[in-house]
Amino acid sequence: MANTPDFDIDYVAKLARLDLSVEEKAQFEPQLGKIIEYFQQLGDVDTDHVEPTAHANPIYDVLREDEPQAVFEQNVAIANAPASQAGQVVVPKVIE
């Protein structure tokens, strides 16, 4: 990680499904470039024999019994939807 990697803001924004204005892009690119450059300090650390920490406090085996509980009424389920019809959420046609 000696060099700052290629940071392709267009590719990443597309992955994140995020519209960025021309101004935002112009602003973000150098800002994020600077931050990513700062992150390079991580690359200098020897972590060959270090396990990653995914959970702040390691706990195991948290399981739930298979017992069904209450559900939403249909109107509650779709109450916040921007568009709905016949109890379903409406989206522009999905092309598979």
Partner: peptide
């Protein structure tokens, strides 16, 4: 599950 109808799709969760 998605159901496609006309210009839109309906979503049932």
């Amino acid at each position: 599950k998605l159901t496609h109808t006309g210009e839109m799709s309906l979503v049932d969760y």
